[in-house]
Design a protein around this nucleic acid. Structure first.
Lengths: 216, 216
DNA sequence: GATAGTTTCATACGTCTGTTTGAAATACAA
DNA sequence: TTGTATTTCAAACAGACGTATGAAACTATC
């Protein structure tokens, strides 16, 4: 092909398959069948399976981070410098949740791939996760700015719990629906987001007022 | 051997390895090397790799459920019939957290294996997860008894979030420690448990008082 | 339109996987 | 001890895996 259509076909095919199945389970032969390219194309264009996964992870990682930071920026500009804690949390958990729960399987593939990359700890991804650390620190800082009275350690735990609820809702949503007998609605994404935002606020705000009272 | 020492050696070896690495990654040859038995012993005693995993999962699953229900029973008897929401939550998240974060690798293996089985969705385990559904429903019922004013759907979400925080703390604890620059202490297990219990209570109790006020 | 460079393709390589085999070793009952 | 049943063992099986090869098919430049 003239341009690197093949590269792109492989990347999107891999993304689509990794969204549903584990890294170890998806073979190169699965990927090239999905992409409708030759088996050798993967090693020609990427060098190895690991390098393919790494490149896929990096590209989707920067996309997710960009999306989150864009939302954060909007909230911070609306609040003339510092965003409310609810808006910061929304910017953190909104993109992956909206992405994963999108009914369009292809559009949701990127988000679900990222969740898998976050959950499964395959060596090749472990090595390039420094990016994620820095990114999460920026959100911790934003949360701290919105609640200056809260101790730093509480901020990190809240961030951790926010991601926890996000990931488990995506990965274990089926179980929740099962356990609740279909009572819990997983189709209304914004309601889920507000629910998580509520939980994070409820956990943090008492600690803020308590700290403020101590200070006064 | 006279008794089924070999069966047991295989089970504990598999548990130990699956606690640290994924199901796909751990081979039968790894397991028999760890157990110091012959390769063919696995298929002789269990039939196949999948059946080994299934038997291991079932046995550890009933052990975990028993532990949780014992804690719940103690709390309910102390409260003469119904336990406080904090105690119910503690009975749910305490056993896996204490198990996984135990410094003794061998003792923590069972708990970490269960977490992996819960996170990785391998077909053979998916089929026998009905057990887990029933078990979680009993905890939902206990939570409902402790907070009768809260809507049923809120109970299920709270249960879901409690498990979310538990799992992510176990699986993503390393990241939390990294992001927080070592600020978050993962060695003090009971402090972590209280933190999760706090978060669940904070999420539920406002909804209880609100519902009670509406009712009045 | 010939040439050089890039990309595709069928095919094969070596290795590792779960599983099977049949004989050897062990245990246990008569 | 003899005979039967259970358990172990080394070895091999067929299949799937990631990767490598070299010829064929393209694309672009002159």
């Amino acid at each position: 092909m003239s341009t690197d259509q093949t590269r792109l076909a492989i990347l999107t095919a891999a993304e689509r398959l990794y969204a549903d199945r584990s890294f170890g389970d998806v073979t190169l032969r699965d990927i090239v069948a999905e992409a409708q390219v030759n088996l050798a194309a993967v090693n020609y264009h990427f060098g190895s399976k690991d390098e393919l996964i790494a490149e896929l992870y990096v590209s989707r990682s920067v996309a997710l981070n960009r999306e989150r930071l864009a939302e954060l920026k909007v909230a911070e500009e609306a609040g003339s410098g510092h965003a409310a804690i609810r808006d910061v949390t929304r910017a953190l958990v909104g993109p992956p949740l909206r992405g994963c729960l999108d009914p369009d399987r292809q559009r949701s593939a990127a988000a679900r791939f990222m969740i898998r990359a976050s959950a499964e700890s395959v060596p090749v991804i472990r090595k390039i996760k420094t990016r994620e650390i820095d990114h999460l620190r920026r959100f911790a800082a934003a949360m701290q700015r919105s609640l200056p009275d809260v101790a730093e350690v509480e901020i990190y735990w809240a961030l951790h719990f926010a991601l926890a609820m996000t990931h488990e809702t995506i990965n274990g949503g089926e179980r929740l629906q099962h356990v609740s007998g279909g009572l819990c609605d997983l189709t209304d994404v914004s309601a889920i987001i507000e629910r998580i935002v509520d939980a994070v606020s409820a956990a943090l705000i008492p600690r803020a007022t308590k700290a403020a009272a101590r200070r006064a």
